[in-house]
Design a protein around this nucleic acid. Structure first.
Lengths: 355, 355
DNA sequence: CTGAAAGCGCTTACAG
DNA sequence: CTGAAAGCGCTTACAG
């Protein structure tokens, strides 16, 4: 009686409906509004759905519901030389969180550095996506303003400095991160605690420095001369690290604005025959793969929580639910590794929430 | 006369059609089969398309054409601890190539390591994607067999060892890569050229070792004792590298099966006060970010060419075009950096094709 | 070269 | 609680 779909083509609502001896609207109700369907009918419908391996066609329901069910994410740093360290783990988190928010992630990008907005426009014009998640915004970044002007829903990983009124963002509390790092180093018994950071004027960088300054002051160790500065480039960082290691000395420790800077400190220690952790403590920032590979303690970004928050924010925009009145700062987590343990028997890698 | 769409809602074929005073089929033809439309009409239609910012609805054309226009890509290594180094650059390449192949990339993944096939099934059931690209296949990997059994189109970055009959793959010619590395080191004037590789039995690893063995033999320097072995873990690699550096000595060089192993050699040199490049040459494999950060010469995988090839392969499967009768091996490229230059003035980073 | 019609598969008011 | 109808926006045979 029930006509089975051919082996090649997929089951549709109609197939399920006739197999379950109900109309196709009932099948749709069973899926979208189960409370409207009598329990016994519901069971029968679900049994057939299962048996036929039915799943609504994404294209058809997108068309009907006027939403793609997708969020776009630009893959930046396309020379493949300068991929942001955070990009891959953040994208993974976003991807894993997406089903929870009834969507999936579509990636896009282009070769040229120039017309970045063009790709956003293309994605949007065909409504391949309902919204965007952006990251790595900077002063003069055209994207936030343009997206906002077009009325395109989006949320940003990182504050949007140019548009203080824009509140759909989540960011990492850098101050809390370096503060935690200092607390940890103090409790491990290190003496002078220096800081290797980026040049003044970067908002993220200044915040991270501030956490170090505040925490060291709190322990009566505030010493702003125990500071060195470098851009995010290894050779320059090695120079700066060398000078800082001189000043901090054996028994001291260094908090860094990034894992790359931490790597520079690590490098300097090795060339001088000093043992990271045992002789000089190091804490990096970002929780990157290279910190892992080199056994560097690092302040890890809470990518999962950020992804979850941002998808919630775009979802709220799409449903015109009440919006947040301000962005969200999330507290990073210190990942302990051997570079910040004075005793040789470093504990196994584990995570520890900041209290 | 022409009714303009409301500011809020998008332009549709109908809007363009009435604005251009043609039927909506003509608009569709202008886009899909321009040769069927009189030039003047074509121009008028395109002008309106431009003016209205029209772009066909992805959902509608997916439904009509019975294809999602999307390729799924699993994001593996989800502890965010073990993301394959190759994942991010490969995904970027795939994403950038996708528009050329009239598709876009949808990512997916799950937390648990267990039911990986379940996520593939979900993506496929709703036809969120038309095909998959997979990578990092291994012996006993359930994915290739399952996908093939289901008749789901897919292509693999890396040979599919378990299914020799399966030819939709592209891989990197590891033998050619290490061969090129040896040639380069010889021409730079290094003496003994050793190899730090993975344990025997890994097909990828054995191939890379073979390239080194063949090329050194060709130069009358075959010496299989100049070899050390380590798994892909830094501490173990450092031990192995230490022994190998002893045997190779100053003026020698070491080719490595991966950038992580190369990093271990680098580390050993620094702790001994030796200068990478100047005193001992190093060449890594993979062209990863960390090779870049540490100035390591590396055999870089041709991600772009691989992505392009794989998308061509799935496209051919979807259109039942003639399929390849065998997989494709692509030649990697040596990226020169200071770790393989004996003279202190290393040239700026540049790429160089293997001849 | 152009136009009227059918239908991809779904969901949602709207009657019963 | 269930059923017949309409329509999301597109594309493709099929007539003119």
């Amino acid at each position: 009686m029930a006509s089975r779909p051919s082996a090649r083509s997929r089951a549709t609502v109609n197939d399920v409906a006739s197999a379950a001896r109900v109309s196709r609207q009932t099948v749709s109700n069973a899926l979208m509004h189960p409370e409207r369907v009598r329990p016994e009918t519901l069971r029968r419908v679900h049994a057939e759905i299962e048996r036929l391996g039915y799943s609504p066609s994404t294209a058809a329901s997108s068309l009907r519901q006027q939403r793609a069910g997708a969020v776009g994410m630009e893959l930046t740093g396309l020379g493949s030389q300068s991929l942001s360290d955070a990009l891959a783990p953040f994208l993974v988190s976003l991807t894993i969180c997406a089903p929870t928010h009834e969507c999936h992630i579509v990636t896009f990008g282009s070769d040229q550095d120039g017309p970045t907005l063009e790709r956003y426009r293309e994605m949007w014009r065909g409504r391949l996506v309902d919204a965007f998640v952006i990251m790595d915004t900077h002063h003069g970044d055209p994207r936030p303003t343009w997206l906002a002007d077009q009325g395109i829903p989006f949320a940003s990983f990182g504050r949007v400095w140019d548009e203080p009124a824009f509140t759909a963002w989540a960011d990492v509390d850098g101050r809390a991160g370096t503060d935690t790092a200092v607390e940890h180093l103090v409790s491990e018994g290190y003496g002078p605690i220096g800081y290797l950071g980026w040049p003044y004027g970067s908002l993220v960088g200044d915040e991270r420095r501030e956490g170090w300054a505040i925490a060291t002051a709190r322990h009566g160790r505030g010493d702003l001369t125990l500071q060195a500065i470098s851009n995010q480039v290894l050779p320059e960082a090695i120079d700066a690290a060398g000078q800082l290691v001189d000043r901090v000395g054996t028994g001291g420790a260094i908090v860094c604005a990034s894992d790359l800077l931490a790597l520079a400190v690590h490098h300097v220690l090795l060339t001088r025959g000093l043992r990271p952790g045992r002789d000089v403590g190091i804490v990096g920032f970002d929780g990157s793969q290279s910190a892992l590979a080199h056994g560097l303690t690092s302040v890890a970004q809470p990518f999962r929580a950020i992804a979850d928050e941002l998808l919630t924010q775009v979802h709220d925009q799409l449903t015109s639910a009440p919006q947040r009145t301000s962005g969200v700062m999330l507290t990073p987590t210190l990942v302990h590794r051997s570079s910040s343990h004075r005793r040789p028997t470093a504990p196994a890698t584990h995570h520890q929430e900041k209290s």
